[in-house]
Write a protein that binds this DNA or RNA. Sequence first.
DNA 1: CCAAGCTACTCAAACGTTTGCGCAGAGAGT
DNA 2: ACTCTCTGCGCAAACGTTTGAGTAGCTTGG
Lengths: 343, 343
Amino acid sequence: MSKKPVTIKEIARVLHISASTVSRALNDHPSIGQPTRLKVKRLAQELNYERNQTAVFFQKGKTYTLGVILPELSEAFFSSAISAIEDTAYKRNYTVLLAQSHDDEQKEKQLVEKMKNHRVDGLLVSVAKTTSSFEHFDRLSQYNIPVVFFDRIPPIQNIHYVASNMITGTIEAVNYLLKRGHRAIGMINGPATLHASSERREGYICAMMKNRLKFDPSLVVTCDLTEQSTITAFDELLSSRRKVTAVVTFNDYVSLYALKHVRNLHLNKEIEFVSYANLPLIKYMDSTPIASVEQFPYQQGQKAAEILLDLLSSKGRERGEQQAFYQVTIESQLIENEKQQLS
Amino acid sequence: MSKKPVTIKEIARVLHISASTVSRALNDHPSIGQPTRLKVKRLAQELNYERNQTAVFFQKGKTYTLGVILPELSEAFFSSAISAIEDTAYKRNYTVLLAQSHDDEQKEKQLVEKMKNHRVDGLLVSVAKTTSSFEHFDRLSQYNIPVVFFDRIPPIQNIHYVASNMITGTIEAVNYLLKRGHRAIGMINGPATLHASSERREGYICAMMKNRLKFDPSLVVTCDLTEQSTITAFDELLSSRRKVTAVVTFNDYVSLYALKHVRNLHLNKEIEFVSYANLPLIKYMDSTPIASVEQFPYQQGQKAAEILLDLLSSKGRERGEQQAFYQVTIESQLIENEKQQLS
DNA sequence: CCAAGCTACTCAAACGTTTGCGCAGAGAGT
DNA sequence: ACTCTCTGCGCAAACGTTTGAGTAGCTTGG
């Protein structure tokens, strides 16, 4: 049982030709005549030959493998993204080596090492929340392993990345609320350390300015994205002298926490929420944000993978000449939550 | 830039020793003396040596890689499972090669081929909904690549698998409803082709019998898990001469579809739902099934990965003697949905 | 008739690592 | 002084494939 796999040499021996001829025949090399080519392919088929990829990988020094490091697979955003990455890689005959950092900087560093040892051709990374230093990524470029960041991009120069444009997304969100008649619009933002937070803030301010409304800093509060912290932040917002009638929150979870809190408070006034992510669960729910900024995780993953594959295929030069850096921001889009009318 | 990676031979050359000695020193082989071992390790460190895994893979004919094929990564169940698989593999120094079949039989077959060519050491599979033949998996065992199925297991003999026990889960669910006073309990099951459906049906019947209630076939209807089909199925249930007061559904989605439909119908009577999966989104919702059978995707993935790793490490014998087959069913568990009281 | 240019193939090296075997030298036991 | 054993290391093959360089036989043009 489980006889040794058929090799190229086997075929060569049987046909009384050399291994190189077999190899070239199988790869449709022009210097092999039609008759031999056919004979080889036929026999290969017959013997159930399958090329030993590990040998090819070793020989070529390539693995046709994309490493992917992301914080948490079970997050809806990332599972969509990885799904897209896998699809895109598959189409180009690449495979995906997966790892999750669980938002831990140390583990992320280990994973980078591991990926390097596995000789992945390139790496896609969404950095861990806690990651503060980024030399472990620098080392990769020394080994000529390109890295494309997506979604959570580190605040450093000269990197390839794909991220969604949170500024315009936020502007859209605020405009939407303004159009619905709101004037006192609050914001529950995320931790200031996150780039995504400052973009939201910037978008918020920008939207207010453009509409000739003055920016009231007391209307922008922050939370650490937990339920408890959201509640605190929301209460802080309520205590503002302005009567907030609408709130933009950092993401759908924050909105849901706040909504739950609002229900428990039995506020008689209506407060409308707009958030980010457009989680699939939203469409099953009754009390939700009225709109959410969709960040298109699938498209983001896809784009990031495509860029990486591009980098890999155009890596002929590699003679030090500094190439350009792909820095793509994909536009986010406000999605209204059309809910069926409940009686 | 991007100088050639340091090899074992480099180190050997510098220290005027042989490559084999270096290799053994780095692998802590007992036949290497302390002094040389240290010298080698020090220099390796200094030169930033990193073993070329592709060479090792090739040499050993192993890749320390687990292939995973599942239907859809963005499904909550599977993303939890893959998360567990990745964690488990990581602990044992394996990596995960990921692929999704998108519930397409053809693609699944291609992926199996690809995994084989990549020489994964073993495979974890949750089969596509449409898969009807299973020879592509047989071929793997000829190549001595063990396969462990999980969650969606094919109806064939002599396989390793991990699945959750839907029979006891269903019994629990029905008992729960009985305890709450319901007598006319309906069931919206999935397509009869799914093994999971027949288990649910079996559990349902079993629970009724044990409670000396007669089994009324008109109370068990099926749907194909889409919203439209769920509505049809539910209406069918309503048209039964028995007045159904509670329903067990195939999964949370079906429950949510049905609940939405119930709201639209403005039924004055209360109908309680129990389902399976215990989706995370449930806890953000207002109108939900009152309980859900948790299938522990993380544990299932973990167990499956552990079994596969066991198979791999105990693969010394491989001398045809038929080993036993791991066939693990993990107990599911009914989780009540404690919701905060709404006024 | 010879150089030149094909076509279709072979040879052998190379990729980096592991590992069975061999062997030198040292120390110990007889 | 002899064998024996042990320690520590080197030699070389092996894993399967690709690929540059070489070549034999043929045709073609001058």
